[in-house]
Design a protein around this nucleic acid. Sequence first.
RNA 1: GGACAGGUGGCUGAGCGGUCAAAAGCAGCAGACUGUAAAUCUGCCGGCCCAUGUGGCCUACGGAGGUUCGAACCCUCCCCUGUCCA
Length: 397
Amino acid sequence: MKFEITHRDPGTRARAGILHTPHGPVETPVFMPVGTAGTVKGLSQEELERLGVQILLGNTYHLYLRPGHELIRDLGGLHRFMSWPRAILTDSGGYQIMSLEGLGKATEDGYEFRSHLDGSRHFLTPEGAVEIQVALGSDIMMALDHCVEYPSSPQVASAATQLTTRWARRCRAACDGHRESGIGSRTLGIEPRLPGPHSPHPTPALFGIVQGGIDPDLRRQSVDDLVGIGFEGYGIGGLSVGEPKAATYEVTESTAERLPEDRPRYLMGVGTPQDLVECVARGVDMFDCVMPTREARHGAIFTSQGRLIIKNARYARDTGPLDPACGCGVCARYSRAYLRHLFSSGELLGPMLATRHNLHFYLDTMREIRDAIRSGEYNGLRSRKGCGPQSSVTPDT
RNA sequence: GGACAGGUGGCUGAGCGGUCAAAAGCAGCAGACUGUAAAUCUGCCGGCCCAUGUGGCCUACGGAGGUUCGAACCCUCCCCUGUCCA
């Protein structure tokens, strides 16, 4: 997988480029909508395409449990299964070790857990995580990691980080093993078998994930270990899990700085629109976050003037669009009053329209970010976006 | 006209002598959400006041009286609603 850096902002560490995946190019910096279970909740694939989404995120843990990676493999891979022609990055399930705490635990050999669906017992090894992602037909696979909670004691953070490194090594080996045996033909069973270096189905990339909590030394060690193993790109994990914002930015900056210049850097699970702007300035190329989609379902709307909660009584008679400065189809057609009504009534269309708008807002922000880098004026964009837009400020009618 | 049943906070609906400004749900109001166990979760929800609290005062369980130290809960009359019989 080739990563081409086309522009560097002179005033910051921001860079713009193109990530060439088996399912098309991805312009970076990029925001990847989260489609955990093979769907971005509330949006159809045609809407995602129309919004200009170039790469989606899927989840190993969820798709393994339901409908099962083997079923997806047998039906031609996740792209075909969900009818998504563009790129897919799959998360490894490492995050679930933390977020489903109580349902499972990490051991040296992998993640031992009970399904949140039916309580059945499962065991996810690093090799298993790769195998599942290969079966899914992922374009970018993530190594199984152990996300460090915040706060964590130095001992716990260190142990989780070192385990992440050992697992990363095993993922690398498993991935290389698959690669040698002709991954493309195995993944897309319906396609002709043409193994070898010039397979029409280029092998997926594997990203390692940096951990280390907010300890600079641990982070540094994690980066060095992973870079030593060698990955096509690097995830920066374990951030925005409750630590102070300043720590998020500091760790992002120092981690990104130490990662190889020519490989994509993916800040996992982050963040607010402001986080995107600030972390691109620190050298991040890729993001994903549930925020635009989850907040949309809960009635929070991102706008150029701040975040607004559309359910509030003040919008009951507001005939204006969600965001006067937005060019999305929702803003072109529907009023705040109507959206508020949809949410008040529990109508399905409310979350759907809100999701479309929020995702448009995020993707538009990324477009502005890329443009600013290309024109070498990133700090200008930064001060325009400045601090505050995502605070609790509510725009007036 | 008679016989039952019943009238509780915006709605539904518990409570049937004190610990009741009154369960619970809904509605309403506000908030949270960062690699999605999330169309979820949290707080407030009679009024006024000191705004510190297992705080004070007022108004409240159809209406008016009464019994009682004390009543949404017991008694009397009245009003209203539902079902059934004439």
